[in-house]
Amino acid sequence: MNALRKLTFGYFALLILLALTVGSSLLDLGGFNSSVNLAIAAAKAVVIALLFMHLAGGGILPRLAVAAAGLWLAILFGLTVIGR
């Protein structure tokens, strides 16, 4: 059962990432803690999007929508940082 294996894999990957993020936050990484945490969060988001939400298999349009949201968030964050 291929689909089931894919979802189970995703689920365990998520739990491992959760353990990693909690674990890493207990270590002093000298200022990199936040970056590591955010990177792990992004990895979790990718796992959910690809394995649970089937982003890869849904045609070009959903991916285009996600890319647009990413670009617009970048605009929002980037120009606000400059504006300060």
Binding site: W72, I75, L79, I82, G83, R84
Partner: peptide
């Protein structure tokens, strides 16, 4: 249109270079 909002804030105290 999304790149220009700061022109409402020229005298608001945002940085001059922005």
């Amino acid at each position: 249109g999304f790149l220009v909002w700061g022109h409402h804030m020229f005298v608001s105290g945002q940085s001059a270079y922005a």
